[in-house]
Design a protein around this nucleic acid. Structure first.
Lengths: 338, 338
DNA sequence: CACGAATTGGAAAACGTTTACCATAAAGGC
DNA sequence: GCCTTTATGGTAAACGTTTTCCAATTCGTG
């Protein structure tokens, strides 16, 4: 069982333990010949460096922890996949931290950098995973960290996201251009910056078109199918029903479509529905979903790059990056027909 | 920056370094009073044990690596989520290992136990992530490992799954009971044990009902929407079209539904479609999908339990566990109408 | 009050690696 | 052949923890 260590490897390769280490890790002032000799020996005897040993010495783990309120959200998942791929390209691994919205678990995952289980954090939430007094936030010594899609809003943590306000405005404008005036929204958790920003975009579009906002048409929900299912019903109960519904995520839209269908409404002829995210299933449902595409892949990549640059030189706080979105028009939206 | 260590903690708490350690970690022959004293001091000064240090000493990382061919498969994802939750309940974290089907990456992730980045492996694939000669498999000293849903088939690794053959037989029988005789299947990757087993179940059902198997109706695909989309077309091109299609995953079924719809076929009146997995979206698509539910949550939990029991006593090879499935009849299947 | 049991202290080894320091050896340029 | 690079060897300290070994102390109970 006892695995071979670098000491034995050195002996077998016929070099000193110092050169063996130099040959395995990079910082190599080792001749090409000896490096090959060592590597060959390592392969031969099946030597694999013990990361705990090297980590203890270098204070690096090679892990990144992704802290996510809900891992099974399909959009988030796309980002995670891309995260994993990008991380592994740089020699990092991704730890999954599904908080289920529980503060206790947020804190536990937030500790992982301090406890040297990870070198940095990619945060999918607007809540900082640390205990802190809101007034003296500046005093908090933050570990390397990047916000994905949701911002903590303190300006300390670089954010990778699209321009949610603009995207939502465009989505709303699309409906307006189709002649809709009674446009409802079902938001995600209204505490999230993404939902707030999208709501702002919705207002902007209505204002620009001089359409009065009917507060009844604004329903604050959650980012989930069930939420879409439930709040769509609420909208159908209104005396004056909306002719279009802007859902702040595709999952909400799916629930919404389901409810509409269940009550005999035809989409898009009776009601137009537009989603947000462009998850994998959006184009396969019936009717296929008009939605705002977010570049999940690029988001993941940028998060990793920004995080690693912080890990390498901790004094640097990289700039936030705004990635392009795209309105994708499919079958679930149609011109208004009275 | 310099974090406090257990030495300083001991001094602050006014105890010896030995008792401090005993108080923090469990194996506690420490009085309740001193334990509390130490814990209070730890909380006070913000002490968090360095996992690299303790890991190096105990040879435990507290990590589990999940090796998965395709992380974004929605069903797998459900298992992963449950994995994460169960693992964290036991103090473990989950590392994500998306191999994208690449041997190179499989091997890299397989090494992680040896390199002490993880204590055990949960494998979502039938391919062993190690270099080995197929003939002397027994010589391979396997790390703690559990198979999720797919088996490597060597009997060395406990498997957590449903009875795929039985489940597929029941699904096929459901179609037969609806009067269908021309029943096609679109399989997943036919190299996977799950697809093989499901195909066997399909045969069994047809044989039992004395229905002759038409090889044209058996299409070997992949577990993906695109595959379903593509191979459904192939089935539609047959001179004598099937009246029902059994898809070996819900994603395949989604693609299949999409193609059928695109070509003007009505589901279930023209063609019945049945899926497999019961992913979250299955009941929300239109028509809602008849499918075989797999207990993703229970699968994840059992995987973790089996793995941890191996980690704790490595001489034990736990038994495989077969979990119950359930045929869920929704709208996408209907009695045969000529 | 005495005696066994339970708890704590002190010191140090061990886990496996990287790296700094210095010495030595080989290689190359003049 | 001398001198400067360059490559390597040897040794040892450090990273932070757990744990062992004893010895010393306190505690509870009769």
């Amino acid at each position: 069982m006892s695995n071979i260590g670098i000491k034995e490897l050195a002996k077998i390769a016929g070099v000193s333990i110092a050169t063996a280490s130099r040959a395995i890790s990079n910082p190599g002032r080792v001749s090409q010949a000896t490096r090959e000799k060592v590597l060959a020996a390592a392969k031969n005897v099946g030597y694999t460096p013990n990361r705990l040993g090297s980590g203890l010495r270098t204070s690096k783990t090679g892990n990144i922890i992704a802290i996510i309120p809900d891992v099974s959200d399909t959009f988030n998942f796309g980002v995670i996949k891309s995260l994993e791929r990008a991380a592994s390209k740089h020699g990092y691994s991704v730890l999954l931290g599904d908080t289920q919205g529980l503060r206790e678990r947020e804190l536990a995952y937030g500790e992982m950098v301090k406890s040297k289980q990870a070198d940095g954090i990619i945060l999918f939430s607007h809540r900082l995973p640390f205990e802190h007094d809101t007034d003296k936030l500046g005093e908090l010594k933050l570990p390397p960290m990047v916000n994905s899609c949701e911002s903590t809003g303190d300006g300390e943590i670089p954010l990778v996201s699209i321009d949610n306000t603009l995207a939502a405005r465009e989505a709303t404008q699309h409906l307006i251009e189709f002649g809709h005036k009674d446009i409802a929204v079902i938001t995600g958790d209204i505490n999230t910056p993404s939902s707030k920003a999208r709501l702002a975009g919705y207002y902007e579009a209505l204002n620009t078109a001089s359409i009065e906002v009917d507060p009844q048409y604004i329903v604050t929900g959650e980012y989930s199918i069930e939420s879409g299912q439930h709040y769509a019903e609420q909208l159908l109960l209104l005396k004056h029903r909306p002719s279009a519904i802007f859902c702040f995520s595709d999952e909400i839209a799916f629930g919404c479509l389901h409810t509409l269908r269940a009550h005999g409404f035809d989409v898009p002829n009776d009601v137009s529905v537009i989603g947000f995210d462009d998850i994998r299933f959006a184009k396969y449902v019936s009717p296929s979903l008009t939605t705002v595409a977010q570049p999940a892949e690029a988001i993941g990549e940028h998060c990793v790059n920004l995080l690693i640059s912080q890990i390498n030189k901790s004094d640097i706080k990289p700039e936030s990056v705004v990635l392009p979105h795209q309105l994708i028009i499919r079958e679930s939206t149609a011109p208004y027909s009275p």
